[in-house]
Amino acid sequence: MASTLPTCHKGQRTVGPRQGLPRIPPRLARMAELSRDDVAHLAGLARIDLSDAELDKMVGELGVILESVATVQQSPIEGVEPMSHPMPLVNVTRPDVVRPSLGAEAALAGAPEADQQRFSVPRILDED
């Protein structure tokens, strides 16, 4: 499963245009400050149905953590290339050759509910 695309070191980086979403300016006045509404919004994005008590607790805890982690901005990071991967590998691919699948039975074995050889899920609210 080796690559036929030759490995090359990162040369001059060419990237495409930045797409879509503009970088909206922070909606909070201060960095390390999260309101209860903010946490509720984030919990919605993360699909976690936090109880009121959990929300209350988390607002305080996250505030403390955020204050601490926000110190990353105090490091001399101006002009530094962000590092997303610890090792400088590129072009790792596999040949386009079919490998055996699990089989429907094994695939569905862990399903909370299955029907007609498919995963049965509760009604979906809206189309994607």
Partner: peptide, 28 residues
């Protein structure tokens, strides 16, 4: 849950550069 919420925040639109982006630079 705490870490999922924190991570959701750090990646969210408007905060990515300040948090996740800065952290990746510190990593370098």
């Amino acid at each position: 849950k705490r870490r999922i919420i924190l991570g959701t925040y750090a990646l969210s639109s408007g905060y990515y550069d300040a948090y996740y982006g800065s952290a990746q630079k510190v990593r370098r």
